[in-house]
Design a protein around this nucleic acid. Structure first.
Lengths: 105, 105
DNA sequence: CGTATCCATAAGTTTGGACTTATGAATAGA
DNA sequence: TCTATTCATAAGTCCAAACTTATGGATACG
């Protein structure tokens, strides 16, 4: 019953997904994110606002800058949904297990 | 490197996600899916076409009907992306593990 | 055969949302 | 204080895409 809708919507856009990936790689601020993204600074701010509403990122003000970091609980609705949608496929579970083994040997 | 884009796009729409959920729950045909979805039959067909392009469903013709079933490998790009995006959070991995344990005791 | 059902495609409409530029608030530093 | 950064918001534009109705092809069935 976790509302996965905002999360799916937020991650549907490639640019916004790129923003999230960079934030997830380590805390950064808006100006740093704007570099190399081929969109304007307001666009980045808007994407960050969407990600924040979806619960995927948190913010932290420091001086003139706003630092963003990924919220570890943000992807949980996605996992829950996959568990529900794929609950009928034991095969899926095996794949997930293998992936986790690769990630965490 | 798996193109997760079509998958994320396909699952972003609530109606299409509902279609996929019902297909994932068991093989069905278009007319059965149309019932209770509050959209027209062509809309359902279009959603199914999108899901098929994204690799999330397969089709099987039988008489006048077209039966759809979920492709077990369809969600893999999603899992891979999550692994990459969340690779920096060991905490995330633990949650996934707990979930899998609940799913597969 | 003729008809009804099932589905996909075509064509057109409409709305959400991903951008842009413009601007102002807040802070740092000279 | 004055100026330069940093960021968020406002307002407007534009396009993708989620619908609709219309239609035709294919199959079942009398």
């Amino acid at each position: 019953m976790t509302h996965a809708d905002p999360v799916f919507r937020a991650l549907a856009d490639p640019t916004r997904r790129a923003v999230f990936e960079r934030v997830a790689a380590g805390e950064t601020h808006v100006a740093a994110l704007t570099v190399g993204l081929s969109v304007s600074q307001p666009a980045v701010s808007q994407h960050l606002a969407t990600l924040k509403t979806a619960g995927l990122v948190c913010e932290r003000r420091e001086g003139r800058r706003t630092y963003y970091r990924a919220d570890p609980a943000g992807l949980e609705p996605l996992v829950d949904w996959m568990a529900r949608a794929g609950a009928f496929w034991p095969e899926r579970v095996d794949r997930l297990k293998k992936l986790l083994e690769r990630m965490d040997p």
